[in-house]
């Protein structure tokens, strides 16, 4: 569909849409849905919830795009909408999540991660870990972090925003963003060490 639309910049598509061309908006949707979903999924770790959030974010964008003053900033604008919706979603489901994550020591969590991935010999994880296991372990490890650290890590590592952009989207000072990033990564690193996930496992996995 609309071959020509594929070559337009986001700003041009926004212009077309505001002039009444719904297909330009659909092109924006095609362009952004996957990225917004990946972000929401990593943050909420639930496929259905993430899809729900993406849909809500896009509907919000559809309704409010005319209020966006600087079209160059569409990327952070749509992400900000998505972040807020993710937060609302977490609040709504907070009771459920709290019980799921009732506090264990990292060590125990480590054992649990291994057993839940069918890994029994934790001294030789290399033989057993495949890409998907590793993905699951990272996912579960990330959910152990405080939410404010987790979101910064996700926005930085997976979405590649600059610290200044993250600060603006989350409405906190840039130094706060950086220290959350730093402590989040340090925590992450400690957990991974407990799990014997080291250089070898990361770079040589089968």
């Amino acid at each position: 569909m609309g071959h020509d639309l594929a070559y337009l910049e986001d700003t041009e598509l926004i212009g077309n849409f505001l002039n009444g061309d719904i297909n330009s908006f659909n092109r924006l949707v095609l362009r952004w849905q996957k990225r917004l979903y990946n972000f929401s999924y990593r943050y909420l770790t639930d496929e259905e919830q993430a899809k729900e959030v993406v849909q809500l974010a896009l509907i919000k964008a559809y309704k409010n795009l005319k209020k966006l003053k600087n079209r160059e900033r569409f990327s952070s604008w749509i992400f900000q909408i998505t972040v807020n919706l993710c937060k609302d979603n977490l609040k709504q489901n907070s009771r459920k999540r709290h019980t799921e994550l009732s506090d264990e020591v990292i060590q125990n969590e480590g054992e649990h991660l291994y057993s839940s991935n069918g890994i029994t010999d934790r001294n030789n994880p290399m033989d057993i870990l495949n890409q998907q296991d590793l993905g699951n372990i990272i996912k579960r490890t990330l959910t152990r972090l405080p939410e404010e650290q987790r979101i910064v890590i996700i926005m930085k590592e997976y979405e590649g925003f600059k610290f200044a952009e993250i600060a603006e989207m989350l409405n906190v000072p840039i130094n706060t963003v950086k220290s959350r990033m730093y402590y989040g990564l340090t925590q992450m690193q400690k957990i991974l060490k407990k799990l014997n996930i080291d250089r070898e496992v990361i770079f040589n996995e089968v």
Binding site: I22, E47, A50, E157, Y158, M188, R199
Partner: peptide, 24 residues
Amino acid sequence: ELKLTSATLRKWEVPDPKLNMVFV
């Protein structure tokens, strides 16, 4: 250590949700 943690994080790939939203 930062590099290693970062490289580890990047091993997490999200399965394709096969989204295809269209607005009317």
